[in-house]
Amino acid sequence: MDGSGMKESLDALARAVMEGLEEEVVARCRKSLEGGVEPREVLREGLCRGMRLAGELYERHEYFLPELLLASEAMQAGMHAVAPALRPSESTEGEGATVVLGVVKGDVHEIGKNLVKVMLEAEGFRVVDMGVDVPPERFVEELHKRGAAILALSTMMTTTLPAMRRTVELARETEPCPLVIVGGAPLTPALAADLGADGYGESAASAPSIIRALVGSGPES
């Protein structure tokens, strides 16, 4: 595949991700790989770019949760298709900072968390997905184990805000102290600050830029 053919192929792949066309995404991933496109290019310029485009449409209110979720499923399916082609030294994980992500103890609402995961992966972050209903101690263990610099927490309920507060407090006691970003329906910038978080994510699509800005500024003392 020559340069323009490759660009065309990756553009079509990105578009298919954006439109949430799972089967087409898998087929286009395979076709790109067979055409000699580097697997990492398929990931970066096809899958991740498509997800970023979907995120931009969401931010502009042209996409809503259903469309964004479909795009994220298509991207995940594409990643599975590309994974076997990667060299042993490579992985579908990004090369950026590691983010430990999860829904706090007592809460099982996971749409926001799942979308944040995909948006971060699309931007090259390594994401450790802890799932839902995660006790504070488990987050801290994982931060230690992975040497992660960023903790991202989600909740949809006010009844689980104490668990979020406890998680932030415990994370603050760990060395090195991670940056903490929180999000979810009951949260606001003021509440995030009150909980001791460094940042607040209003939407999943904004998570990468918020984390990048925080990493640039470092944890607040």
Binding site: G20, L65, P66, E67, L69, L70, E73, H109, I111
Partner: peptide, 11 residues
Amino acid sequence: GAQRLFMDCLR
């Protein structure tokens, strides 16, 4: 589950 429902609404 809202996530599956949203996608089912499209599919």
